[in-house]
Nucleic acid binder design. Structure first.
Lengths: 342, 342
DNA sequence: GGCAATCTTGACACCGGTTACCATAACAAT
DNA sequence: ATTGTTATGGTAACCGGTGTCAAGATTGCC
């Protein structure tokens, strides 16, 4: 039996209004820092707010404004470090705002992926959603967001969408530069561990490798290429395939760091010295790169900055297309590369 | 969905009521599967809901029910893979519910950490929050949640709280078993790379090492111990400290996988063969363990299961203390351990 | 002093759901 | 036929904020 006495409930806008002798609407004006408001009134109300420790109810606000201050992020994690860095970047961007971040991992091989995503969008009514690779490369998913009227930004390795809906790194160029670094060291037979079929990022990275090889008159023959699917195990397999040929490469570019780690492990198991007998280059610069032996030469993706930009595109849609979309990568030389011996 | 017309606003409960010729209240009863309702009416309304693709507005629901169907998770990432596995576990648990997951990384060294967390809790009014280590070991933070009336679950390595607010692995026992494995292989001088000062998990793991050493009459002298702070770099430093002594250990237990990777890298740099000259054991079984060379023997934490349990404790508070709190770890032998040579 | 222009403020409906309470219909028991 | 009981559905108030619009207070100007 609740007495009429002190309530345990949080203070509401009505409490603030009553205690400061103004109407709810005026309190609302204070909260939203409306310009048409007497300074004295504002201070009086602010004092009461501070005293009560009043914080507006976000659900009520969302309902009245028909606007939800929550950003979403969907991913099918290819890489934990990348996802987490992204999360941190988003948090950087929303820290000074009232936005929050909802995460939603999915399984891209699930047969009801689309239904699953649809349900998620309809249920949560988010302000906007960021889509991470490889889901971001799926145009069908983007179309679903558009159909449901949910704002989105895709994070990708190529021009997947217009600038308002995209943050992008130029993987092709980044890989070209990395491979040219190897060529500059004197390598002529440079292998490629390709990413999975149908992945845009895999295609771009492959194209970058070919660009560099062709530009220097080097052959891209089949014995220099092996396909993986961005996992460690397939990196190992690709490594075995490349290293057991008649004329094995003196350097290998792997389309991501985990696969590069697989190549390194296989090489070491066979007594192939790195970087003495074989140079290895990865892509992503995730935590693993610095941690394996020897530390891996790789390409750093400015994920955190890209995440900040993606979040801002959603928070300020009117400026979305002016917000930076293209991000430069950075080549990070470490100890897994050297000039070939001969 | 029939009708390809212009996409109006989303259907509301009123639309459903009008089209099915019943009142809002009846529709609400259908949505909440109230038992006192005519079967025919229910089916009629359900048909209209399906046709319209109606989904109740979560903000309005949250407001009316005074209850928010969102779970939160705060962490100061010590380990990306762990955080992500945890997220996936939570998603497992909420997949069939209407709950969503909000994430909130923080910096535990920030001077206004407490204010930051307070603001987060007050602003979001979550249904409950999961706290990951090392933040979970901070009693002050737990007290803040209690003070603000926000339900929480801590994830930890020891009995930090009552079962309703805790999911726990027994790190001490897990480490004891891992070290006894080394002893069983014939090792006598077994080094410890300790975790950072003040961390409960670090203390527990250290205690487990001592338990095993003492139980077998082995000395825990200072030259066998070095402290790190759970980062790769400090793992390297600790490795150098342990391996440059007069009588270096033949095996090293590192309190987490990244530090173990640091030890491995340092050893390989100095031509110390692993596992021939030195066995190394880690803790966590994060992705890195399987990926370095040689693959790391370690202890697997059932993070995903723990996360599921934590989420269920929050979703069903009435059953929270009956939900599993204690989780067993699993010893994972790989190629970084072997019997000492001599 | 009178009147318009501008600044402040509050009454009230509304966002999209929920519950409390009441009204009616159907059906059984007396 | 009257009454009691149980199903079922309607009405209105409410959750805690917001927009609209107009009234009241101030000010400027002739």
């Amino acid at each position: 039996m609740a007495g009429k006495g002190k309530r345990e409930n949080k203070p509401t806008i009505n409490d603030v209004a009553r205690l400061s002798g103004v109407s709810k609407k005026t309190v609302s004006r204070v909260i939203n820092s409306s310009p048409l408001l007497n300074q004295a009134t504002r201070e009086k109300v602010e004092a009461v707010i501070a005293e009560l420790g009043y914080v507006p109810n976000p659900q009520a606000r969302a309902l009245a404004l028909r606007r939800n201050f929550v950003l979403g992020m969907i991913y099918d994690n290819p890489n934990a470090q990348m996802v987490l860095n992204f999360q941190e970047g988003v948090l950087d961007a929303i820290r000074t705002t009232e936005f929050a971040l909802l995460v939603h991992p999915v399984d891209r091989h699930s047969p009801d992926l689309m239904d699953h995503i649809r349900r998620f969008i309809e249920l949560q009514r988010l302000h906007g959603v960021m889509i991470l690779p490889p889901l971001s490369e799926n145009d069908e998913i983007a179309a679903l967001f558009a159909e449901l009227g949910c704002n989105y930004v895709r994070m990708g390795s190529a021009e997947l969408d217009d600038p308002a809906h995209l943050v992008q790194s130029d993987d092709r160029d980044a890989v070209r530069r990395a491979v040219e670094y190897l060529i500059g060291q004197g390598h002529r037979r440079i292998g490629l561990v390709e990413g999975p079929e149908g992945f845009r990022s895999a295609m771009e990275r492959c194209a970058g490798w070919k660009d560099a090889m062709n530009a220097h008159g080097l052959d891209c023959d089949d014995t220099l290429m092996a396909r993986g699917n961005y996992t460690f195990e397939t990196g190992r397999e690709a490594g075995i395939a490349l290293l057991t040929g008649a004329e094995p490469p003196t350097a290998i570019f792997a389309s991501n760091d985990v696969m590069a780690a697989g190549v390194v492990q296989v090489a070491l198991e066979r007594g192939i010295n790195i970087p003495g007998d074989l140079s290895v280059v990865g892509f992503d610069d995730t935590a693993i790169a610095a941690v394996i032996s020897p530390p891996l030469t790789t390409v750093r993706w400015p994920i955190r900055l890209m995440a900040q930009s993606a979040a801002r595109k959603l928070i300020y849609p009117e400026a979305a297309s002016k917000e930076q979309s293209q991000f430069a990568t950075e080549f990070v030389p470490r100890a897994s590369t050297a000039s070939p011996k001969n």
